[in-house]
Write a protein that binds this DNA or RNA. Structure first.
Lengths: 205, 205
DNA sequence: GTCTATACGCTGATAGAC
DNA sequence: GTCTATCAGCGTATAGAC
């Protein structure tokens, strides 16, 4: 009769326990305010295990970073694979980011709120990671397909996602009280139509 | 014959030398990767002076933070005092931020790129500081004056400034090669008009 | 692979001369 | 006020038993 581990936090693989603990601690206090001992304590493992698995605190942060970027990339790819038009793909990605910010706050906080360059000097900045590249790629294709206004790719991409990312930051900083999904419809409308009221549209255009 | 100090970096007031050195170091390496000794060395002052003036490393960071927020607030206030309409005020602020990002990079980087909460736990998040409040206030007045589209204040403000802030982050991260002022006209146009091309405007609205 | 105990270096902070 | 020399504590990393 083989021994079957139950899926409780205590029996979760050492690897996962360390990463889970590190995510919570890093987001709450920041990388530099968390010691190996803190992680060891919260994850219920020994320091030795942490070094065996990840080679140290920086190794934990790096593994976590890659793990979460991969997870985000999967989500973005799922949206792309739905085969929607490019505009709708952008919408779905924004909605997904909004939902994640509410339900899996720490993941979003670690991936797009933390300053990785300060503790992972060899990693490229987050905005050049695959999920963000994919997002800009969608916008680019949208432009070529005539679904999205032409212009400098960076400006257009920032105009499409900038407002959403700004709201996420405000929410993560605790300044914004409302859950993001509630603001989704209005933001999307603003984003695609622009903030100019129709009443004075001619005088501005 | 009184001794007159020349305005060279060596003769600048101890206070200023410390703050200048700290700004450069904090932006380049991050607060936690800079030691008091680093600041002391770069500023050509003694550790004792740093403690006398600011009470320690955190004191330096806090003084610097308040100093720069005040400087930004002055700039925003100058724009407001010009008495332009609210839309034009937003434009001017964005342009000013773009120019500062190019010419006084470290100031922008420290004020809106750093994670202060990790080393200044008692400070409110940057987005609730006076310059940002003023910016949201301008948007709010613009809405009431009918110059800016109605809607949730947070959504509208994020739609107005989100794209610009996004571009600033991309630029500071070294991902964006072009100087921001070059992108200004196009961003402003996008921001006020929306990214929907006129050709399909009806089918979306 | 997992753990504990230990060593070493760095950093923030202080004491005391000038 | 400014400086140097020194201390104490913490945090990383390792060594070595199990």
């Amino acid at each position: 009769m083989p021994h079957l581990k139950k899926a409780t936090p205590e029996n979760a693989s050492v690897n996962k326990r360390i990463l889970d603990a590190a995510l919570d601690l890093f987001v709450e206090r920041g990388f530099h305010n968390v010691s190996i001992h803190d992680i060891q304590k919260q994850a219920n493992v020994s320091i030795g295990s942490i070094y065996n698995h990840f080679g140290g605190k920086e190794g934990v942060a790096k593994a976590l970073y890659h793990h979460l970027i991969r997870e985000m990339e999967e989500l973005v790819k799922d949206v792309v694979d739905e085969g929607l038009d490019y505009r709708e793909s952008c919408n779905r990605i924004i909605y997904m980011l909004f939902e994640y910010t509410e339900t899996k706050r720490n993941i979003i906080a670690y991936v797009l709120h933390a300053k990785h360059q300060e503790f992972l000097p060899d990693e490229p900045p987050i905005c050049s990671s695959t999920p963000f590249k994919t997002m800009r790629n969608i916008v680019q294709q949208g432009i070529e397909a005539g679904e999205i206004r032409e212009g400098d790719p960076w400006v257009i991409a920032s105009s499409v996602f900038g407002g959403a990312i700004r709201l996420i930051h405000l929410r993560l900083d605790g300044v914004l009280e409302e859950p993001l999904p509630k603001l989704y419809d209005e933001l999307i409308d603003c984003m695609w139509q622009g903030v100019t009221p129709a009443s004075i549209q001619e005088s501005v255009a």
